[in-house]
Design a protein around this nucleic acid. Structure first.
Ligand code: FES
Ligand code: FES
Lengths: 147, 147
DNA sequence: CAATAGTCGACTAACTCAATCGACTTAGTG
DNA sequence: CACTAAGTCGATTGAGTTAGTCGACTATTG
């Protein structure tokens, strides 16, 4: 039930972009530094996210990546699905890539997997990057005040 | 967020064993046939489950595997953990294999991953094999009546 | 002792993952 | 218009994991 590094990096990158939304585009290098992601690997991730329609980019000096819509309209489930495919633990309960099991009609496990899928989907679909950015800002402010 | 085949097979095997609990031991071949799992692969899985203490076995003719305790006392989370390791999507929110992230204190994502972990854990820890066996029997009975 | 059934460790082929590279295209700057 | 700073794209790689196999061994029963 592990999330791939790619999925994790993608979430972190999107979060970073959300934190700087409505400023200048961020270039790969800066995101890479801020979030500690190998630059060349991040390049691929951002490209994939762009092809999926979540990011836009500008070339040349002062270029970089930026969100194609406000962070409030993007949730974590979407970006994970772009990077890692369906959220479901096994295919027979996937909404996006359903496939049938042989013993499906008499399988006592299917219901359980479905519960898991639904729970995960609900949490990730509810979490927008707007909200995550807000949490991050709060955590950082708290840290500055404290310690 | 995918479950490995090994985890899936292990669940199915445990379910099969639960359905026949308190009868004779089941041998690998029968479980393999009933649940459509490659025999030689299943062998490994059962062995692992035995080493973890969930199964006992008897050699020789009339031998086979059987549960070491009643199905009501075994939940799915346990067996998945034996086969696939921690349930958490990433290590910093794992209870069983916690590890720290670099930017942990100012990370807006950690809370989310934790929610996911907790939700998955709750569902899987609540589901006992007793209950799953019951669901399976119900589904089969229903199927016999219907169609 | 022959047949049955689990035990153990090693092995492998295929695949996936994380990462890297080189060559190319586009955009801004002086 | 040349130079340079960026993103774009496809290919490739190396490490690691997964799913599955194999052969030799040990214990049990009849
Ligand atoms: S796992 Fe798909 S139906 Fe049982
Ligand atoms: S992901 Fe572990 S702290 Fe952010």
């Amino acid at each position: 039930m592990r999330l791939s590094t790619k999925g994790e990096y993608a979430s972190r990158a999107m979060l970073e972009l959300s934190l700087h939304h409505e400023e200048k585009p961020l270039h790969i290098r800066d995101i890479s530094k801020a979030q500690d992601i190998p630059e060349r690997f991040l390049e691929q991730i951002l490209l994939q996210l762009k092809r999926a329609g979540y990011l836009r980019s500008r070339k040349g000096p002062n270029g970089g990546y930026y969100l194609s819509k406000p962070p409030a309209e993007i949730n974590v489930a979407e970006v994970i699905r772009v990077m890692d495919g369906p959220l479901a633990p096994i295919d027979c309960v996937s909404v996006t890539a359903h496939e049938v099991c042989p013993h499906e009609s008499s399988c006592g496990l299917k219901g359980l997997w479905k519960e898991v899928r639904d729970a995960v989907a609900k949490i990730m679909e509810t979490a927008t990057f707007e909200e995550l950015a807000e949490r991050t800002r709060a955590a950082r402010a708290g840290r500055r005040r404290g310690a």
